[in-house]
Computed example of a mutant assay.
Amino acid sequence: MMKDAAKATVAIPEFPKSPYEFSGLEECHAHYATMRQCPVHHTEALGGFYSIVRYPDVKAAGLDGKSFSSATKGVLLPADPDSPRLWALEQEGRDHMAAKRLYMEAFAPARLKALEPRLTEIANGLIDVFAGRGSCDLVEDYAHPLPVLGVCAAIGVAGVSVDKIRKVSGDFGKDPSRRREVIAELGGLVMGELMERRANPKDDYLTRVANAELNGRRMDEADLAMFMVGFFTAGHETTSSTLSSLLFHTMQRPDLCKRMMSDDTLLAAAIEETVRLNPPFQAFHRTTTTDVEVSGAVIPTDSTVRLCYGAANRDPVVFDQPDRFDPERQTPGHLGFGVGRHVCAGAPLARLEIKTAFRTLLARLPDIVLTQDKLEYSFSDGVFAAPLHCHASFTPASPV
């Protein structure tokens, strides 16, 4: 990626379709394959934006926070310069680093090690609900509630409705006009506990957040609400989607599942391959702060740019047979958790939740099998891809 616009030699074609108009992931990936023939595309849809689709270009843009800003207009479409900014995700510079450091305290290695037994309890509790039935929907019964409960356990929140968090967080990116309302709703779910921690501090992470100062300023209630949204949007939906996809891809191969139960390296690789093949977030957006050249094509200053992680993760120049699930492939790292300074702070928790959920399920229900041969994804907003259902059956078992 170069910044000398005088060297630009590649014309930027118009791509007339909005990502909101894709009928599903299959159509989306078919368009990605066509779009990768050129490094950059432009469309007037959703206020106008450019798309970058090739792996090297998407990675380079993600690493170049000075030229591609998350803060100027946010990361969602349509771009809205006046909407409230999500902490860390839609910040740059000192504000971004201060917020991200506070998020990462919740996911420190020692905290995650201490959390693992509780995650196993959560997984077993969810399995207990459906174990006696002999069948379940792994999305609805397992993959959706587990990350909410896991995040709450990680940050010390108690008594929050799983269904409420799921509903409200699911609305976050779908209707930009409701963004402030959704932030207030999600923040309100935990504001009482945060204020209680201010009045009666404990030795826990929630007390740390409730009393935190970022760059010398104590967070007010609006700041706290915004900060907590990061846990309940990125920390819930992404893990739920990845866990559902992992179970679908691996449970079709009993031999692979058996190996993953005892091989930490293979299980970790399978999780990363799932994120590569089916990243929960297909794209995030940036705003150019200068004229930027991408593989010979110039994107003007103050342009909205779509970094297509989903397209980059299936770039055939980088990944052999990119549409195939292969946990033993030897390739560069995927971009499904982002890249550079905006790489997902909660990825270590997500990996631990998915690892624990996979092994607990297969240990409790060793003969579980899928009863569907295709996984359908919700993809209504052109960004977030969420499996709808994953039906399975097994020999009924007793609660632990």
Rank of each mutant, 00 (worst) to 15 (best):
Q37C: 05
A347T: 06
R166F: 15
G346H: 06
A225R: 12
S67W: 15
P396V: 15
P117A: 14
C38H: 09
V305S: 03
F227K: 04
F325L: 03
N200A: 13
N200E: 15
A386W: 07
E14N: 03
D80V: 04
V58T: 05
C257N: 09
L186W: 05
R36Q: 13
K258A: 15
P396Q: 11
A268P: 01
A79R: 07
R118K: 14
L89V: 14
D291I: 08
Y205W: 06
V75K: 00
D128F: 08
R276F: 09
F284T: 13
D95C: 04
G48F: 12
K202F: 03
L112K: 05
L256P: 00
G150W: 11
P19Y: 11
S244H: 06
E92G: 02
N200C: 11
M261P: 00
E272G: 01
S244Y: 05
V75S: 04
L119K: 06
G187Y: 01
G235D: 12
I155E: 12
R94D: 15
M195F: 06
P16D: 14
L206R: 07
F107V: 15
T360K: 03
I354G: 01
V162S: 04
F172D: 07
H236I: 03
V129E: 15
I155Q: 09
M228A: 13
E293G: 14
F130G: 05
E116S: 03
S241Y: 07
C38S: 07
V339F: 08
A5H: 08
T288D: 08
V292N: 12
A210V: 09
A385T: 06
L115V: 13
Y205R: 00
V162Q: 05
E196V: 02
A297E: 12
D223H: 04
A71Y: 11
L186I: 05
H42M: 13
M104D: 14
L349W: 02
G24W: 10
A386C: 12
R36P: 01
H342N: 06
D326A: 01
E44I: 12
I165A: 04
V383K: 04
N278F: 14
K355H: 07
E27L: 02
V148R: 06
T360L: 07
R351G: 03
R178W: 12
E196N: 06
S169A: 12
A6P: 01
V75G: 01
F325Q: 01
M97F: 03
R259E: 13
R179Q: 08
M35K: 06
K73D: 04
A184W: 13
